[in-house]
Design a protein around this nucleic acid. Structure first.
Lengths: 204, 204
DNA sequence: GCCGGACTGGACTGTCAAGTCCAACCAGCG
DNA sequence: CGCTGGTTGGACTTGACAGTCCAGTCCGGC
């Protein structure tokens, strides 16, 4: 259980620690990130860290929540404006561009955390599972909008298509990061979109 | 660079250490596995470990190679016997069954290692990327067999379908492990197969 | 001004894990 | 038998890291 800061200053400090820790953990993993590393990177002191977080585990929890919120914020926003095939292509292009900009390193922060922490900590696993569920919700929303616009057939199994799309995203990100080639993500997303289009409503 | 044992006894010892370490690392991750844990689990001593491996990093390399070989052996074998849609369905069923048997924990050993180590160590990243490439080869082989049997159209883009299939596998495994629900893998694989069937050769 | 609580700096401690070292052990072989 | 080289047991050293503690500082309210 982490303490909620009472002052503006305290909030800033806690925020700074979480952001710094999130950056370090994203690039080297939670286990390989020491508290001293976080302290050095953020210019905070031991007592500040332990003032706001129970222990290292508490910090990691905060980082997980932070990353989930960040990724979901971006995805929910981007997917919320999808209501045509062109929009969907644009969204896919954005995903690939982001990965390319990072030199195809890191992949999806949530995916990486999920792979590493799901088997280690039950509480974190459920947080991550929840994040994937929320991401699914955003995708489902977009698909239903396409359906409402008559682009996807009414009888299509939206639920399965949603899960399938998310798995293509995650798998594509993992392959891209491992092979350092954003093209793998491109192929995975194109494949997923092709699948969606296969469910296109027939001409009226 | 790890030393190759000169005697039968030495070979057995090294093998025992790698297998034990692989099991521990698969369930808790490389960073969370101490050498003492490995020693305790295998009944080996410090000097044995350092006799056969340079250091911990060397052991992890050996474990990565071992896991890649194990998974690929299984996959290459299972995919080599695929030459009809029924075979492919059977293969998918096997994958889901394996995951279910493990209580949807752990996911793909290669995928988990890739997520954790790709950003940490370049040598390991290339090993993992190589493993994915070999896995792709096995998938491509199966698809080309389907194509040769007239089940997939000659003009289909086998290369993209291969990458797409692998990304569905990995994404499905990650979602399954995070949500502790093998059904997510089932959906991902069904989706991939549906996509392949969409490329079915037209009736002659 | 001054009191109390939120916040901060940083020294300190205990634990644990990586890696070293050496004294053995156990073949096979001359 | 005694030597040699591969192998083994386990104590020991060293360093890093999580977590503790206390002496403060800062700031709003009275």
């Amino acid at each position: 259980m982490s303490l909620t800061p009472a002052t503006q200053q305290g909030r800033a400090t806690k925020e700074r620690i979480v952001r710094g820790a999130a950056a370090l953990i994203a690039e080297r993993g939670a286990a390989a990130t020491s508290l001293d590393d976080v302290l050095a990177a953020t210019g905070a002191s031991k007592s500040q860290l332990y003032h706001y977080f129970e222990d290292k585990h508490g910090l990691v929890e905060a980082v997980v929540d932070h990353q989930c919120a960040a990724v979901l914020g971006l995805q929910a926003h981007a997917l919320a404006s999808v209501s045509s095939w062109e929009d969907l292509e644009r969204w896919a292009g954005m995903m690939v561009a982001i990965v390319e900009d990072h030199g195809a390193r890191g992949g999806c922060p949530i995916g990486t955390l999920a792979a590493a922490l799901s088997d280690t900590d039950e509480r974190l696993r459920t947080s991550l599972a929840e994040a994937f569920r929320a991401w699914s919700d955003a995708i489902r929303g977009a698909l239903m909008r396409l359906q409402a616009n008559g682009l996807i057939a009414g009888r299509a199994d939206i639920e399965s298509l949603t899960t399938f799309t998310l798995s293509a995203i995650q798998g594509g990100l993992l392959l891209a990061k491992t092979s350092r080639d954003a093209g793998q993500l491109r192929i995975a997303l194109d494949g997923a979109i092709l699948q969606l289009r296969a469910n296109a409503a027939g001409r009226p």
